[in-house]
Nucleic acid binder design. Sequence first.
RNA 1: CGGGCUAUAGCGCAGUCUGGUAGCGCGUUCGUCUGGGGGACGAGAGGUCGCAGGUUCGAAUCCUGCUAGCCCGACCA
Length: 488
Amino acid sequence: MPFAYGFLPHKGYCQQSKAPDYRFHPRPLWPKEYISKTNGASPMRMSRYFLPILKETPSEAQIVSHRLMLRAGMIRQSSAGIYSWLPMGFKVLRRLENIVHEEQIRAGHHPMLMPTLQSADLWRESGRYEDYGDEMLRITDRHGRDMLYGPTNEELITDIFRNNVQSYKDLPLTLYHIQWKFRDERRPRFGVMRGREFFMKDGYNFDIDKDAALHAYNRHLVSYLRTYERMGLKAIPMRADSGPIGGDDTHEFLVLADTGESEVFYDSAILDLEMGDREVDYDSVEQCAAIKEEWTTPYARTDETHDATLFDAIPEERRKISRGIEVGQIFYFGTKYSDAMNAKVVNEDGKLVPVHMGSHGIGVSRLIGAIIEASHDDKGIIWPEAVTPFRVGIVNLKQGDAEADAACENLYQNLTALGLDPIYDDRKERAGAKFATMDLIGVPWRITVGPRGLKNGVVELTSRKTGESVEMTPADAIARCAEIYAGV
RNA sequence: CGGGCUAUAGCGCAGUCUGGUAGCGCGUUCGUCUGGGGGACGAGAGGUCGCAGGUUCGAAUCCUGCUAGCCCGACCA
């Protein structure tokens, strides 16, 4: 009984993919107690929050996402390419992590957790201990054993698989985790976009044959499309090179941004494609294949795989060249690791066959940089509603004014009760400073409360993105915010 | 890993050439005035000048070694 692990279903993508259970949050954003409604000790009051914002840009930050993450008090560098995540940055990281979990679970994949430190022996088996080179951080423990800080987990998961699965009846199977990785980059830069330590979702599918594994590939492509779209991102799957993971079939997902590290060539028709809220049956081979077809038919490639002849066949007005940030990649690599590490199962005919595998990754910490690159202005970050650390900002223009204080307090309590996750700027600062702070940290919707408006019974609701303000009663402002976030 | 550069208060910087015991702006603390887009004035706090050694009566400053970090390139999620 290899899979009798409590809440994890033994089998079947069917039930889960058709009725996703959102009560299951692999890692809640924060425990309920975190939000105190009684003693005023909530960390979402800015006067009590830890949000060390900077007026000036630290000199080491070159690109906008890095600058803004430092200025908005999201991260602090601890050494080259290694960062501490301060409360607001950590909150965004958790939001992204949860979206990834939800979409993976929806697709029928099983969350688990593997360690950051691995034994070198497994990597010697696959031959990658030597191949991986200096990017692998090698560590020796007190007994002189060779260890390493995992840059990826193919070996470890294959070892777990071969020790616990013997039969085709336990397939198909996809396991994944979201865990810190380390790749000792020669030259870390761009903040979390290219750190040495990074937070990544990596998943591994095990299937009986190539067709089944290709379905897993397509299923991942679809789940990734949904994941990025939910985060408010336009991520385009592009045919890619397989790199050190190895394998035949691979796509990477790129977010268009001027600061991207890759040059990309694409047919602008692909920008019109949307997953929307279409129902997806992740068990349907046909449906997943059709969606893959839909998204991979328009030309979209990085400079690594670019084919000028194919590109030139696109109507000229749809030919686009720009830059992109890689935020994920999916691979099918067949029996590369199962052969090397002897991961076999018995098939229907009673024969021992190597499993077909693929792996898939989403750079969760890197995504934060990509989102900011794609969504900011000269005042600061503009968070998409789905990933914002705070959904509504409350600006009290005259702290200490009894009426304004009471109105803000009321808004704060009501928004909190509705799960609208407010941040209340209750500092004794001038209006300009409060506006600048809200703009910098990127809160999508701001409610401005001041004595002047309150005389007429109104507050102001302002969109960070458009800058448009509308006056309305506090009750209407709350209702409007609830409406905005209803589908998020 | 090649090439370039930097390290002085929480952040941004000056001072180093020409050695004499450290300064400016922002932030921060207190007070007064202010109060709808980083306000004004006044008074404070805060630095073994990256580390180690050397030269010198005296080193942020000169010399030697080291460490850390940044940028360009090649490489990479």
